[in-house]
Design a protein around this nucleic acid. Structure first.
Lengths: 277, 277
DNA sequence: CAACTTATGTTGCATATCCCAATTTTTGGT
DNA sequence: ACCAAAAATTGGGATATGCAACATAAGTTG
């Protein structure tokens, strides 16, 4: 077949990638604009968006789509779509633990992200140090917040930086409190699955006068590769349900503070039902 | 005046505040939803949005509105809308100056952003060091790219970090080339308007074996507060039109390389006629 | 109270978007 | 080259949104 001149059409995967790229820079894209840009029909773009929306990579809107989460997200699992309400509650509750003028370290993660969003929403006057680009951007929206970002190797999976540079940087600051999430919490303590994040979390814990763990109850009983802290090293555990079983016993043997965020009204962000097929 | 019972209607200012609050938590709100929530007509919400949009507090979209700043700012968005084609051309052209395996420093800015997008799109195998969160995120999407981020004070206006920490960090790396943008280019040299960026750019220029300036022609003849480099310190100027007048003379007196990106096909952003109705 | 300003509601219509189904084109493998 | 699957286009009817002009209501001022 003879190649036609002019810009060859992008394939589906490329188009989808491009849509996500656009959404990283603009908060909203229109179906019609993208159709024109790609030289395809609006129907095609619509289909792309539907798939991306089902995958949780963006939010559909009438006439277009908006970024799934301000800033970016790419690879955060389907877990991102679950437990949104719980995470928001935890994040909001954790924000109430912060006083104006506090300095804090904020870990990267979906739950700590909600925490940062709550801080920005409430315009809390804080100085925050983080290794998460998303946290930096969300909290940076608040004119009341000062944000410092750690250096290091950029990790696409979580939109954060890791590595020795990051740890060294964090070690240079002493803060009132650190807020860290985790992939698992069991009798063995707090554990993390993502390579590189364990060191970051451990460093943050070392530098914070108060240690706040933000862990939703779905992580209870799960143990991952590397331990971030033992149970009795947990200062405060902010979660959405009381741990029970072996974990509950192990935790109650310690003197850590357990804060369960009330199940009251969740103030934002409902999940849009995926279209059935 | 006696307050009536029942849900009293919000006043205009309250409604507008509420809209902005919603947008802090959700990336997108719909006109119809808000109208129902406030018990007002869609027209009223539309009028609110129009005002807020004019004030730059949100971005209108068909059927609703999205947050004005998901990490970038209205400055950025506005500038992004202008000279898109030129910037894409410059960015793509600059990407062709990079060889696989190169290490580069990438400045924050709208033009360097396009450069990063081109690198990501073409899956170039590079190691990049940047102070721009957006550059990091966009380039981080490419599995072929390694990205390191500088530390420092987060600057919401440009979604980048600045400060002595950032400069010190950058000074620790020696790269094949640095790609920097600028707010102005005149006989006085390359100048920058944003406070804090000048030092970053100067540092990058010091660390790069090759110095590539990405400056579109709308910046020609403009002089801003702080000088980043004199004309003869420019290694390579990548732009979209040949400078003329005093600037052209000043530049041609030097031995710098001027690359004008061809006005031909734009790689992915070219607008072609969509399906007509 | 009347006149005035402002905010909001209402209506009609043009346009944009959505959804569906049938059809055509492209893709990918043998 | 051929076929089968996937992707994209086309056409059309149903809905949603935008816009502007006008009407109504609420608050302001003298």
């Amino acid at each position: 077949m003879v190649e036609a001149l002019g810009p060859k059409r992008l394939k589906k995967a490329d188009r989808r990638r491009q849509i996500l790229l656009e959404l990283r820079l603009k908060p909203h894209v229109r179906v019609s604009d993208l159709a024109a840009q790609f030289s395809v029909t609006t129907e095609t773009v619509r289909r792309d968006m539907e798939e991306l929306g089902d995958a949780g990579l963006l939010n559909r809107a009438h006439g277009g789509a908006s970024a799934a989460t301000p800033g970016s997200h790419l690879d955060m699992d389907q877990r991102r779509l679950e437990r949104i309400a719980e995470r928001k509650r935890i994040g909001r509750f954790a924000a109430s633990l912060v006083s104006d003028g506090d300095t804090v370290m904020i870990d990267a993660g979906t739950t700590t992200m909600e925490f940062a969003r709550a801080l920005a929403f409430e315009e809390r006057r804080v100085t925050a140090i983080t290794n998460s680009l998303q946290v930096a951007m969300v909290l940076g929206q608040s004119s009341a917040a000062h944000v410092r970002l750690a250096p290091g190797k950029y990790m696409q999976q979580e939109a954060a930086v890791i590595g020795t540079e990051a740890c060294e940087y964090l070690s240079g600051y002493n803060v009132d409190a650190c807020f860290v999430g985790a992939a698992g919490l069991s009798e063995a303590g707090v554990t993390e699955a993502v390579h590189g994040f364990d060191a970051i979390k451990r460093t943050m814990l070392r530098q914070g006068a108060a240690r706040r763990f933000l862990i939703d109850s779905s992580k209870f009983g799960r143990t991952h590769l590397s331990r971030v802290a033992t149970c009795d090293e947990i200062g405060t555990l902010v979660t959405d349900a009381l741990p029970d079983g072996a974990l509950g016993k192990a935790i109650r043997d310690t003197s850590i503070e357990i804060l369960v965020s009330p199940a009251g009204a969740v103030w934002a962000g409902e999940v849009r039902a995926a279209r059935s097929r």
